[in-house]
Write a protein that binds this DNA or RNA. Structure first.
Lengths: 334, 334
DNA sequence: ATGAAAGCGCTAACAA
DNA sequence: TTGTTAGCGCTTTCAT
């Protein structure tokens, strides 16, 4: 294994030409006669020659690999992003390297390593929360960076985002029109940008519709299934019960379902539930979950195309914030 | 952007030493005096020097990246594998590069590219079906290869597998003991190694228990949700109905649930359902799905550890087949 | 402990 | 059209 590999020098020797000619023949460069080229190609094939991409990348200063940094790889939402990014980049001749930031402590570290390693030509970073250090790190762009982030405060990089705020208002509006007046809300993590905006959207629309918000109906969640379940348990302790629960993401909505089932409540007859994200599972819950569909495919596609355009220098415009569409998917849960 | 970067030559100049000394100081080599080292480190820090990992990899012939080739990245089963592989490799100082084979046509191509690129030090390949060409390609190991595969026919690489056959027999046995005699089976794709073994396990155990298999109750599926739904629809056309449906994977079991609900059957009262894989969603179905838990974390961990041991030369034993455990998880669906 | 120099495999500028 | 040669940034002998 790892036996000494065939290189262009070896081919050059056998073909009685210089390594430059071999390089040219192999890279499809024009300045080689048909005969020389076919002779070289034949020998290369016979020796099962494979170019050392590492050497090539090294000299060219370009690897055709993009890096994708995620907080946590297993999350379903993220895996859809991975697929979308990978599909898009592959079509443009790029590989995707997926890097979990393995906990927040190392997010900045991961970004820094990747930025300066020369292993990736560009970076897509999925951000759940943003602080100054992260922003500074991302802005120190040795290579192009695109962030997928709820926080759209401008930095020195492109941002692909979802309209959390408006979608959240849409939800409240929909509920209001359906006749729901008593709405409970399960919040996401306090530092999560998406969660913050969704919460703000909820509050603002309630205010606009003059819905009074019972403070006991605003629960703290953490975007996990269990968090949603516990929040709902807590909610059900109150004597007065809401008519519907708005969970800031679908995973918590699933937790909601569990709690409600265990406590003997029927959805939507006794209490309605609405979520946010439209993860795969949502459609197959009983009853199917009404939710906001976040188009992860577009999210990943936009991010990748933007990044590759930046890498290739095809896009030298000012850094942008691009908003991907959402859509209210009405199913059976409210 | 991409401004000329600081390199060891620059540091050497400023520190009035040779590049060799800088290299030694930076790599923690002993043969440098405390003073020289700290001087160099200070300058490197001031200049915000980051080593060019590509150059380092190139000269060392080692990138500390492992490749993970998957048939389709979005599958939930696979994303758990990704996480496990990434976590494990990260702990050992490796990055993980995820490569979707983007359809079978390019699987061999993907393997070949990665094998010879020098970009990855080793390769984990998730195989859903195996043919001679794939086997030959994997066996031509310029670098170590570990396959995660149902097909365990020996090749020139390590194999991590799941005991599909035995687990499938376990399922039938469990059903039999629960009093189910009329069992329907929804098969996976005909060329899928796991599916083939699960089906064989089903047949053999039925035979052993002298359960007669109604041919109309053996359906063709494709491991997708929709496939499971359609198969179940078809199954319900028969006048005689089975007491329980064994879906060869959980995704199809979810499809089963949908079809049964739409046709007015209650699980498990009217008809039972059992699956295979234990994907995240299974626990939260109504009723929670009884299934075989495939421990993807262990699967990925075994594969990664094996691979890294091979890369480091810590394992020079003959190629092995390692079987990861499964476990029958009894919930409420039968 | 430090330096000089070779070389990893390839591309590309320059010469011929 | 082809060859010569100089790097790319780093590690690693081999001297000193």
């Amino acid at each position: 294994m790892l036996s000494k590999s065939i290189n262009i020098k070896e081919i050059a020797k056998r073909a009685n030409v210089s390594i430059a000619t071999v390089s040219r023949a192999l890279s499809g460069n024009n300045n080689v006669t048909k005969e020389t080229r076919s002779k070289i190609l034949k020998i290369a094939h016979e020796l099962n020659y494979k170019p050392n991409l590492l050497a090539r990348s090294f000299v060219k200063g370009k690897t055709n690999i993009i890096g994708l940094i995620l907080p946590d790889i297993s999350d379903e939402f993220f895996s859809e992003i991975i697929k979308s990014v990978d599909d898009t980049s592959y079509q443009d001749g790029y590989f995707t390297m997926v890097i979990s930031s393995h906990g927040n402590r190392s997010l900045v570290e991961s970004i820094n390593t990747m930025m300066n390693s020369r292993i990736v030509d560009g970076l897509i970073v999925l951000l759940s929360s943003v602080n100054d250090e992260i922003k500074r790190t991302l802005s120190s762009h040795r290579i192009p960076v695109v962030a997928i982030s709820g926080d759209t405060s401008i930095g020195n990089y492109d941002i692909i985002t979802v309209d959390n705020y408006k979608s959240s208002r849409d939800v409240v509006n929909y509920l209001f029109k359906k006749g729901y007046k008593k709405i409970a809300y399960i919040n996401g993590p306090s530092e999560n940008s998406d969660a913050i905006l969704r919460h703000k959207g909820f509050c603002d629309e309630c205010k606009k519709l003059k819905l009074t918000i019972n403070p006991a109906w605003i629960l703290n969640g953490d975007f996990t299934l269990l968090g949603g379940e516990e929040a709902t348990n807590q909610l059900l302790q109150n004597k007065e019960r809401p008519e519907v629960i708005f969970a800031a993401n679908d995973m918590m909505a699933v937790g909601c379902y569990n709690s409600l089932a265990k406590n003997g409540y029927k959805i939507p007859d006794d209490i309605g539930v609405i979520g946010f994200d439209d993860i795969l599972i949502s459609e197959y819950l009983t009853p199917p979950l009404t939710t906001i569909k976040v188009d992860t495919e577009t999210l990943g596609k936009f991010a990748t195309e933007k990044l590759i355009d930046r890498i290739n220098g095809n896009d030298t415009s000012k850094h942008q914030v691009i908003t991907a569409n959402t859509e209210l998917v009405i199913r059976k849960s409210c």
